[in-house]
Amino acid sequence: MSLQLFSFLLAGLIVLTGALGVVFARNPVHAALFLIQTLFGVAVEFLVVEAHFLAAIQVIVYAGAIVILFLFVIMLLGVDTAENLRVDPLVGQRFAAIITGGAILGLLLAVINSVDGVTGNPASLRAVDQNSITGETIPNINQLAETVFTTHVFAFEVTGLLLTVAVVGAVVMARRIPGALQPLPDIPALGGSDDEDSDVDADVEDVDVAGEA
């Protein structure tokens, strides 16, 4: 077993345990910390195949910015109360979700199994790694910069615009409007979780059905 494969498997274990932790952690803060574990594992996977720049960006942007944003909102809103995962809010939903996830996994693995290795013509692209004049190996970050700022420069500009729009939108949505807030309409169907309410809901539905009939 090569060192590359060993690193891949070790990081893969970190990634998968972190992902399971995100799904099964009852407390959102714990889920965010498991997410950091997964993101670091993915960064290691990037390093294994020499995507050095992306590994750095993965740690800085994902673990450093996005997860911190998650934690900030969790702390700010005080929604870090543990969720009881034992009760299934919609009967059969969890079972259906697991069936769906298993189906997705089965389909993906079937496709991967049916494809015999990667397609394309790697030999023709192999020359990209080396400077044709000096014969030196071009670092990953130089290749990436050259592609982003030449071939994909328009997409790069549009991405900058997207980020600007996102920031402005976030400020508009989260700003404090002067005056009292209008209360949101109360939805009777979702009003509560106790049995009394669900009885009322059933009655309302019966009336609706009767009205239609």
Binding site: V15, A19, V23, Q93, I104, L108
Partner: peptide, 14 residues
Amino acid sequence: ALLFSIGSVGLLVR
């Protein structure tokens, strides 16, 4: 594929 499936199950369950 494994990571994507775990993420999709979590999205549906949580």
